[in-house]
Amino acid sequence: MLQGCDHSPASLYLDYQKRLANVSNGTFTPPSALTPLPLATKSKPEPQVTIGLLELSAINHCPLSTLIAEHNSQLGKVAAPSELFKYQLRFILQAPNCIASLQGKQQPLADKLEQALEAKKQHLLDYFNYMLYQEVEFRALFSLANQGFSRELAGKEAAIEALAFFNRVKSKIIADSIDNDDVNELTSQLAKLHRNTYVKTLLTEAQRQREFNLVTTATLATLPIESRLCVKQRPSDTAQFMHNVFQKFYIGQLQPLQADISGELQALLPLLYELYVQDAALSNQLNVESKLSLLTQLKMSAKSHVEWWQSFYQRCAIKPY
């Protein structure tokens, strides 16, 4: 009884397959287990310049001193990737004033802080990427979802806002124009991704619908059309029943659903692509212009499925509408 109340996309497709199997005597099976999109792991970047305790005591007059001390504490050593990235940002923003206060008085220390500042600027994108690959909220984007996609799925606006923010931060890193607002907003934007299932649900459903299309079309291609279903282009009762199933379940329900998923992907994937463009294995599946993208593959699987039915109608001399 509970299964009968399930209106998830997977349940709809299984019903479509079941109806086709009942009328055609074909063996339609669901796709094999899905695999998440290939998000690699990153090692934590190593600091290029270290500030010793004596040097730290010499800059007690600078807010930078407190920042470095907190970072060197036990809590700092186990900080999350996003907190490590925020430390680099704060160091870059606070260091210039501290360096200026040391000029001509403690020049060696001023030079060392300048070295540290330049090193952090040079490797800031590495720390940003470390966050993208290792922060729990970002890794969760590419995990497989248990729930199915629906038009009322919550979390879309928050996820889009957060991803757009991190894209702006990345652009500012490249342009060397990071400011305090970016640091202050980072935690709240990351929180929008915490337990937000929108992205992973959409990506999972797109993969699932693509695989359903592929395996169903492959089974349809094995059916004996000319020898049994439509002898001499005369449709049998079975062929007419198949036509009814296709129109009611695929055209009436699944095709609009897959069109909605494609539309959502069209808006989401460019944001993910800009963040992960440096990762060839992943970015190909996120780039909407690529033949390997999840969006293109979903559309191609749907096109192939419809093309089989168009061929079926021609060979059986059935008018589809």
Results as ranks from 00 to 15, higher is better:
residue 1 M to G: 15
residue 2 L to F: 15
residue 4 G to L: 11
residue 4 G to D: 15
residue 8 S to C: 06
residue 10 A to E: 15
residue 18 K to N: 04
residue 20 L to C: 07
residue 28 F to E: 01
residue 28 F to P: 04
residue 31 P to E: 10
residue 34 L to C: 12
residue 35 T to H: 14
residue 36 P to M: 09
residue 37 L to N: 06
residue 41 T to C: 13
residue 42 K to E: 14
residue 43 S to D: 15
residue 44 K to N: 05
residue 46 E to H: 15
residue 46 E to S: 15
residue 48 Q to D: 07
residue 58 A to E: 10
residue 85 F to R: 07
residue 86 K to R: 14
residue 91 F to M: 09
residue 92 I to D: 07
residue 93 L to A: 04
residue 100 A to T: 15
residue 100 A to Y: 12
residue 101 S to G: 09
residue 102 L to H: 09
residue 103 Q to W: 13
residue 103 Q to C: 12
residue 104 G to I: 08
residue 107 Q to T: 12
residue 107 Q to N: 08
residue 107 Q to C: 03
residue 108 P to G: 10
residue 108 P to S: 05
residue 110 A to V: 05
residue 111 D to A: 13
residue 112 K to I: 09
residue 115 Q to M: 12
residue 116 A to V: 13
residue 117 L to E: 04
residue 117 L to C: 02
residue 119 A to W: 08
residue 121 K to P: 08
residue 123 H to V: 09
residue 126 D to W: 07
residue 127 Y to D: 10
residue 129 N to W: 08
residue 131 M to F: 12
residue 142 F to H: 08
residue 143 S to G: 11
residue 145 A to G: 06
residue 150 S to F: 05
residue 150 S to D: 08
residue 150 S to L: 07
residue 151 R to F: 14
residue 151 R to T: 15
residue 154 A to Q: 12
residue 155 G to L: 04
residue 157 E to N: 14
residue 159 A to H: 06
residue 160 I to V: 14
residue 161 E to D: 13
residue 162 A to S: 05
residue 166 F to I: 06
residue 169 V to Q: 11
residue 169 V to C: 11
residue 174 I to G: 07
residue 174 I to E: 14
residue 175 A to W: 09
residue 175 A to T: 13
residue 176 D to G: 04
residue 177 S to E: 15
residue 178 I to H: 12
residue 179 D to S: 11
residue 179 D to K: 10
residue 181 D to Q: 14
residue 183 V to G: 03
residue 187 T to G: 10
residue 187 T to H: 13
residue 190 L to K: 03
residue 191 A to L: 13
residue 197 T to L: 06
residue 198 Y to M: 00
residue 199 V to P: 02
residue 201 T to W: 00
residue 204 T to E: 02
residue 204 T to G: 03
residue 204 T to F: 04
residue 205 E to R: 01
residue 207 Q to H: 07
residue 210 R to M: 14
residue 216 T to W: 00
residue 218 A to G: 04
residue 218 A to K: 08
residue 220 L to S: 01
residue 221 A to D: 02
residue 222 T to G: 02
residue 229 L to E: 00
residue 230 C to K: 00
residue 233 Q to Y: 10
residue 235 P to S: 03
residue 239 A to P: 02
residue 241 F to N: 11
residue 247 Q to N: 13
residue 247 Q to V: 08
residue 248 K to P: 01
residue 250 Y to C: 00
residue 251 I to P: 02
residue 257 L to A: 01
residue 258 Q to F: 02
residue 259 A to G: 09
residue 259 A to Y: 05
residue 260 D to F: 04
residue 263 G to M: 00
residue 266 Q to R: 12
residue 268 L to T: 04
residue 270 P to Q: 00
residue 274 E to Q: 07
residue 275 L to M: 06
residue 278 Q to K: 13
residue 279 D to N: 05
residue 282 L to K: 00
residue 284 N to L: 09
residue 285 Q to K: 05
residue 287 N to H: 03
residue 288 V to P: 03
residue 290 S to T: 02
residue 295 L to H: 02
residue 295 L to C: 01
residue 297 Q to N: 06
residue 300 M to G: 07
residue 301 S to C: 01
residue 304 S to K: 06
residue 305 H to N: 03
residue 305 H to F: 08
residue 312 F to H: 02
residue 320 P to H: 10
